Simulated scan of single mutants.
Amino acid sequence: MDRLTNTIRPYAWGSTTAIPELLGVEPTGEPQAEMWMGAHPGAPSRTERGPLNEVISADPERELGPEAVAKFGPRLPFLFKILAAGAPLSLQVHPNLAQAKEGYEDEERRGVPIDAPHRNYKDANHKPELICALTPFDGFCGFRAPADTARLLEALDIDSLKPYVDLLHAHPEDAALREILTAVLSADHDEMAATVTETAAAAERLGGAYAPYATLAHHFPGDPGVLAAMLLNPVQLQPGEALYLGAGVPHAYLGGLGVEIMANSDNVLRCGLTPKHVDVPELLRVVHFEPTDPGVLRPEADPDGEEVYATPIDEFRLSRLVLAEGSAPRDLTARTPQIVLCTAGTVRVAECELAPGQSVFVPAGERAGLDGSGTVFRATVVV
């Protein structure tokens, strides 16, 4: 098994304190947004045997197990992260597998450089993801009922929003949501900026449920994503609660510390709250426009006390184990590859002692006992 040394990504939206506090180190003063654990070539974890992606590439069946290689190919199919949002992230959506393959192949045929700022598809894979809160965690997820959004907009009493209120009362609901999002993202830039500014002032005045939109407008003045976010369900996760984000579901994270796991992909289509490229036609092709409940997940304990976050995909499986002082050791041995992360207390995986924020990679089939007192998250795959 390999103790992991992980890269921290300094994205501008990252918290300056959350990851240092978890690790028990002094803040640097710079934003620390994500700590990556895995074999993604952009920032692979490092081991005494070398970068994890190179370790796996040297002998995929030994590291991942023959079943995982047969199902997912010779690479770790997930990326595991600690995510610390100190400011809002972009409003975004991910494609399904067929859309990702089609979009990637199309951009390859057209010769769009892989690092071009207007490129949508960096690979041919989908990117389902799961975020599990370590602290209270705020965000938006999925379209709320149009009638609820209509009431939200009506209270702002802004003339330029009244046509959207009328549309929100129209049927079918999916067509109304599509028409509004299209109008918001395609409107004249100056006119939309003026509407967003007026909306922000009204949201500041009203406070309460409107406060998040004033915050968004503070970070992204005049951005149409502020209005797009008003179409979505606000959600606050409590520690231990999670959201599963499948293809086509618009979402944004506002703030908090969490554990995130996703399929190994960089495919993101943005709806706003960003200076980056927004491809409206492609976005509209990918978004699911039906109203939906955010679907907050709470883990379900198996007979051995391992708490599993159930999701409908196989590229990753996330679970949590909480060990009390003096509890019996657990056997984590599995025929699949694993990354084990400690988030509280002190635990041992085989001979590796882990403090909060520390992690290990356990190759398929390697014996791995777990003991100590604390909380760990276990990331693996389903074969």
Rank of each mutant, 00 (worst) to 15 (best):
V112A: 10
Y164A: 14
H218R: 15
E173Q: 13
H288G: 13
G29L: 14
E353Q: 09
T135D: 13
A87V: 01
P44V: 14
G369W: 14
P88R: 07
E107H: 06
E366T: 03
L161C: 07
T380P: 10
G142N: 07
A70P: 00
D304K: 06
T182M: 08
R49G: 03
L185T: 04
L167C: 07
A217D: 05
V69L: 09
S327H: 08
D115F: 15
R62P: 05
P27G: 13
C271S: 09
P66A: 09
L370G: 06
P95Y: 06
A175W: 00
G208I: 15
Q92A: 02
G86C: 03
P51L: 13
N120G: 04
L243Q: 02
P294W: 00
H277L: 13
G369H: 07
I114C: 01
I339R: 01
T7G: 04
V278H: 00
P239A: 12
A328E: 13
V112M: 07
R109C: 04
P77G: 03
W36S: 07
R330T: 10
Y244E: 12
R62S: 11
V360P: 00
L254Q: 02
G255K: 08
P234N: 04
N267R: 08
P51R: 15
I82W: 05
A12D: 12
L237T: 01
A150F: 11
V226H: 10
I82G: 01
A355I: 03
V112I: 15
E34M: 11
A368T: 04
E282K: 12
T274L: 12
S45E: 05
L231K: 03
T47S: 05
T199H: 03
E63Y: 07
E191Y: 06
E21T: 13
R119A: 15
P44Y: 14
